[in-house]
Design a protein around this nucleic acid. Structure first.
Length: 338
DNA sequence: AACCGCGTCAACCGCACACTG
DNA sequence: TCAGTGTGCGGTTGACGCGGT
């Protein structure tokens, strides 16, 4: 029963990923889709552990990832969800599809935790409690099907409440067409995947089983794919260019606004690594074909998707405010998702 | 200018769960 | 039913950058 390590320690490279490795991984995923991570090192020749590959993909290379600079909405949402769900970062991340669980976890540990501790019993007292090991919802040790369903229902309920609170409290702050929080819920079928995620299966949208393809195949995802890759390439360029940081797209260069808008910039469109010139536009544009996506104008499609999904999510979120039995929530959620 | 301490975050590790034969 | 394998998750670590002295 002794389980061998996921990878033998010999000959396995550790530490920061190089741009070249990233490229190899990206092109592999582009060709085969995410999953079957075990095969990745052997097929690609990467001297990396399969887990490392998966992690790199989910936390860094996966399309649609936003890095750095958490907005107020996101921050509050995280605080709310953490208070409700505890340190179930994957479940929390499923409500913020653009964020990875690792990112959220780091942000919590470095910013929010301290902030809440320092601020005394600040927002949502439970948040202070969040630091305590007894969150409102603990993952049960085991669950029968009935229990599972109950827990799913509970989780949906709690998360929905948290989202609603967060959205409500931020409503006035929110710019007209900035579906941040709601988008977080809607994106990638956030609500449902989130539900599923928190439902013990804990396989959130953010999870990578089929990474991008698990996200709703909206063109928004595609846009973000392109953005993401060029951002990545941009990061590499800067890194190589002597920014000095070891991070490709992390904190360093990133005034997030700048980074995000940089995606389309010509600056990012062509970079060279060790003499190899790459066209950022070319690579990602054809990349991720396994993600079914229309080649529509990105922004337009994203907007459309956002709007429809947002309204669905909103109606779901605010449903019980209208007196809808919570018993139907699961059905509603299921209907919405599947 | 050099040193030091702290904050941040990417990556690693180990455990648990899900799936499959 | 059980063992083996693959994957996901959360906690932790270590390297790097930055600000203060």
């Amino acid at each position: 029963m002794v389980r061998p390590p996921c990878c033998d320690k010999d000959g396995v490279k550790k530490g920061p990923w190089t741009p070249e490795e990233d490229l190899v991984l990206v092109s592999y995923v582009q060709e085969h889709g995410p999953g079957n991570w075990r095969a990745v090192p052997t097929r690609t020749g990467l001297m990396r552990c399969s887990k490392s590959c998966r992690l790199r993909w989910t936390n860094y290379l996966r399309p649609g990832i936003k890095r750095g600079n958490f907005t107020d909405q996101e921050e509050k949402l995280i605080v709310h969800l953490q208070a409700l769900l505890g340190n179930r970062w994957a479940a929390i991340a499923s409500y913020l599809p653009e964020r990875t669980d690792n990112d959220i976890k780091n942000y919590w540990n470095t910013h929010l935790k301290r902030k809440l501790q320092g601020g005394g019993d600040g927002d949502g007292g439970a948040a202070g409690d969040a630091v305590s090991p007894k969150p409102a919802a603990q993952r049960p040790a085991s669950s029968s099907k009935g229990q599972w369903e109950r827990r799913l229902q509970t989780d949906i309920d709690m998360a929905r409440r948290a989202l609603r609170e967060a959205l409500t409290s931020l409503d006035d702050v929110k710019p007209p067409h900035q579906p941040d929080a709601a988008n977080a819920a809607a994106g990638g079928g956030g609500a449902t995947t989130g539900a599923a995620a928190s439902a013990g299966a804990d396989s959130p949208a953010a999870s990578s089983t089929s990474g991008a393809s698990q996200c709703s195949p909206s063109s928004a995802g595609y846009v973000l794919t392109t953005e993401n890759i060029s951002r990545m390439l941009d990061g590499w360029a800067r890194k190589k260019g002597g920014g000095g940081g070891r991070r490709a797209a992390g904190s360093g260069p990133a005034t997030p606004g700048a980074t995000e808008s940089a995606s389309g910039s010509s600056e990012a469109s062509e970079v060279s690594y060790g003499g190899t010139a790459l066209s950022a536009a070319a690579a990602p544009a054809s990349a991720f074909e396994y993600e079914t996506k229309p080649t529509v104008t990105a922004a337009a499609a994203a907007d459309a998707a956002d709007e429809t999904q947002l309204s669905a999510i909103e109606s779901w979120l605010f449903a019980d405010a209208d007196g809808i039995e919570s018993g139907s929530l699961l059905d509603a959620a299921m209907d919405y998702t599947f």
